[in-house]
Amino acid sequence: MAAAAAAGAGPEMVRGQVFDVGPRYTNLSYIGEGAYGMVCSAYDNVNKVRVAIKKISPFEHQTYCQRTLREIKILLRFRHENIIGINDIIRAPTIEQMKDVYIVQDLMETDLYKLLKTQHLSNDHICYFLYQILRGLKYIHSANVLHRDLKPSNLLLNTTCDLKICDFGLARVADPDHDHTGFLTEYVATRWYRAPEIMLNSKGYTKSIDIWSVGCILAEMLSNRPIFPGKHYLDQLNHILGILGSPSQEDLNCIINLKARNYLLSLPHKNKVPWNRLFPNADSKALDLLDKMLTFNPHKRIEVEQALAHPYLEQYYDPSDEPIAEAPFKFDMELDDLPKEKLKELIFEETARFQPGYRS
């Protein structure tokens, strides 16, 4: 834990890192770190609560700039109880001085990944967590956004079992017609939660990839272990087919990539493993919904509104309290091709509203 900075004593240090967030945020305490930044909790002297502050230093890398800009653009436009918001952003007053960006968010005690390492969940908890994931996802999908990296560590939890989806750095506007060349190379989302079509096709992607990830998360809540822990690309596919069985001819016809289709045709026939054999203690309604989410063919996979209306979630289902976005989200430009200098300018502009004396 960093010592509390005395008023006016300059930035606090946390594990050798400068955290320049005073005077409003003090009493910093280390939480963890990701690929390009550290997260601390801090005391907000204005709202009198502890908050989470993520320090991001992305400006050396085009990919990190892209992810940072995506996350900020999306989260500043989203407003939903099951999606983490941005409360404040701290950065230098000029673009030349801006080396880091500090993002202030609600402090959540833990995440689903940490929880599943230590606790076996009751059916009631599984049901409530799944409902909140789908409630947040309904809003995301209504904005025409794909999260693309749903996994237990991106689901934040607090002691009252509130759940918030975080990390929109890989999110995209849904565009089933656009052929994202190089899709697989830039697709760094965790393999275990990846839909089979991501490994088999490169053309376009749809909201059904997020539903697949939610199915993987439900299976993990039922058993405290990942359902498809593939060691590499082909191993991942083999794990999936080992449980779902061989795809039907109709399902194979959806695979545009001939090499991928021929690979699947070359494999020995596998039978589907019954879900109640894998999860003998699970609620039968939970397994019915799991089956509809972990469907090989993305066109037959359940959609988020149908999933919310499934009998497993009937005690929570309330369409009048499951809000959607006001308007579909649009990125003005494809960020993939922009140089990091341009992305830095866009991050600077996007964060201006939090600067003292800002006038829109």
Rank of each mutant, 00 (worst) to 15 (best):
T110D: 07
Y193Q: 10
G215S: 08
L287Q: 15
F59I: 15
D106A: 04
K342R: 14
I53E: 05
L170R: 02
Q249G: 06
P58S: 12
L289M: 13
D88W: 00
H180S: 11
I255S: 09
C40N: 00
W212R: 15
R194L: 12
H239Y: 12
I209F: 14
S208F: 07
R79G: 11
P226S: 12
E33F: 01
V304G: 15
V21E: 15
S360T: 11
R15V: 09
Q355D: 09
M199I: 15
A286S: 14
A325M: 01
E33V: 10
P268V: 03
R301G: 06
I243M: 03
E326A: 14
G204S: 08
R24D: 03
S223G: 12
I103N: 13
V18H: 05
K292D: 08
P328N: 02
H125N: 15
T351D: 04
L115Y: 02
E350R: 01
Y187P: 01
T190W: 06
A171R: 09
E349S: 02
N47P: 05
P339M: 14
L184H: 10
R50D: 05
A282S: 14
N47M: 12
G32K: 00
L115T: 01
R70Q: 07
L346V: 09
A5L: 14
H120I: 01
V18F: 12
L343Y: 10
I86Q: 08
L278Y: 06
I256R: 12
P229Q: 03
Q306L: 14
Q119M: 07
Q315F: 04
R148T: 07
S284T: 14
D175S: 06
P196Y: 06
A5H: 05
D177P: 04
L267P: 03
S29V: 06
G357F: 00
S153K: 09
F78M: 06
Y139L: 13
C65Q: 03
G34N: 02
P152E: 13
F354W: 11
R301Y: 07
Q236K: 14
P274F: 00
F59A: 02
Y316T: 01
K272A: 05
T295N: 12
D100C: 02
R24T: 01
Q66F: 02
R15G: 13
Y233K: 11
G182V: 15
E349L: 01
Y113P: 09
D235Y: 15
P176V: 08
Y312T: 09
E220Q: 09
I324F: 14
E303D: 15
Y113H: 09
I240Y: 06
Y131F: 14
I347S: 14
C161I: 06
I302Q: 13
H310C: 00
H239L: 15
E109P: 02
F19I: 15
T295H: 03
L218N: 09
V49C: 06
A260E: 06
L222T: 06
G34V: 15
G85N: 03
A52M: 15
P268W: 06
P319Q: 15
D283Q: 02
G16F: 03
Q315C: 00
L112A: 03
M13V: 12
E322D: 10
L241D: 08
G242Y: 05
N238E: 10
L222I: 06
N87Y: 15
S202E: 13
D124P: 06
L156M: 11
S153T: 01
Y233V: 06
A352W: 05
L146P: 05
A219G: 11
I324Q: 06
E33G: 00
V188Q: 12
L121C: 10
F329S: 13
I133L: 13
L308K: 03
L258I: 08
D210Y: 15
D321L: 10
R277P: 04
D283I: 06
A35H: 03
A195Y: 01
S122M: 09
A5N: 00
D321P: 00
E60Y: 00
L237H: 09
Q355C: 04
K285M: 07
L150N: 07
T63I: 10
L335D: 11
R194T: 09
L116T: 04
N276Y: 14
L137C: 03
P311A: 01
A189I: 06
R135W: 01
S246R: 14
L308H: 02
R261D: 10
V214E: 15
L134Q: 15
K342Q: 11
H141E: 11
Q62M: 08
S223L: 14
K344A: 10
K270L: 07
E314P: 00
T68I: 02
W212M: 10
T295K: 11
I209M: 09
I84Y: 02
H180M: 11
P323C: 04
L134A: 08
D162P: 00
P298K: 05
E314R: 01
R191W: 02
T185W: 10
V104A: 01
I53K: 01
G215K: 13
P229N: 02
D175H: 04
Y139A: 10
R135D: 01
K340D: 10
R191K: 11
F183K: 10
K231C: 03
R50W: 09
M13Y: 14
R67S: 15
K54R: 07
F279Q: 03
H269P: 03
R148M: 13
P319E: 11
K292M: 15
F19W: 10
K231Y: 02
L157H: 07
H232C: 01
F129A: 06
A9V: 06
Y128L: 12
G242A: 09
I243W: 03
A307H: 00
L308T: 02
P268S: 13
I140D: 03
T110Q: 12
S142V: 05
Q315I: 04
L146G: 06
R225Y: 01
E350K: 14
Q66H: 15
P176Y: 07
I89C: 04
L264R: 01
L75E: 05
M333D: 12
A52V: 11
V214D: 05
I209Q: 13
P323R: 05
K300E: 10
L237I: 06
G85R: 02
K292G: 09
G245I: 01
L335T: 10
L75N: 01
P247I: 00
Y233H: 15
I209W: 12
C161Q: 10
L287I: 08
I255R: 10
L156P: 03
H299M: 12
K138R: 14
Y36W: 01
S246T: 01
R191F: 02
R67L: 05
Y193G: 12
G242L: 10
A327W: 07
G204D: 07
K99E: 09
C216I: 05
L234I: 13
Y205S: 13
Y43N: 15
L313E: 06
R353C: 05
G215M: 07
H80F: 05
I84P: 02
I74P: 06
R301S: 14
I255E: 08
P226R: 09
K344I: 08
E322Y: 01
L115F: 03
I256Y: 07
T185H: 07
Y316R: 02
A325S: 14
G204M: 11
L346E: 13
I103Y: 07
Q66T: 03
T94C: 11
N271P: 02
M38L: 15
Y102R: 06
V173D: 05
I83D: 00
P298G: 03
G10C: 13
P152C: 10
K340I: 03
Y36V: 07
K285A: 06
F331P: 00
A42D: 00
I90M: 00
L155N: 00
P23Y: 00
M98S: 02
D124E: 14
V173K: 11
L346S: 11
G245H: 07
T118K: 12
K48N: 15
L294S: 07
A171Q: 08
I31D: 00
S29K: 04
D124N: 15
K55A: 12
V214K: 09
L137G: 05
Y205A: 04
F19E: 11
Q249N: 02
A189Q: 12
K285E: 13
C65P: 05
D179P: 08
A4H: 02
L278G: 05
S223K: 13
V39A: 04
Y102S: 08
I84E: 06
G182M: 06
K48Y: 11
D251Q: 06
A6N: 00
F331M: 00
C127I: 07
N158I: 15
W212D: 10
D235H: 08
S122Y: 07
L346G: 13
N271Q: 09
V145E: 15
N87P: 03
L313I: 06
H61V: 07
Q97L: 15
Q105V: 04
D106Q: 03
D321G: 06
G22R: 14
R79C: 11
P229A: 04
V21Y: 10
L146D: 08
G357V: 15
E334Q: 06
L244P: 07
Y358C: 14
P226M: 06
S208R: 03
L170A: 07
M293T: 03
I165M: 04
D210F: 02
T351I: 06
I89V: 11
A195I: 02
G32Q: 03
H125D: 13
S57K: 03
P323L: 11
R135N: 00
H299S: 05
R148W: 08
R353N: 04
P176G: 05
N144L: 10
T206W: 12
I140Q: 13
Q236Y: 05
Q132T: 07
Y131T: 00
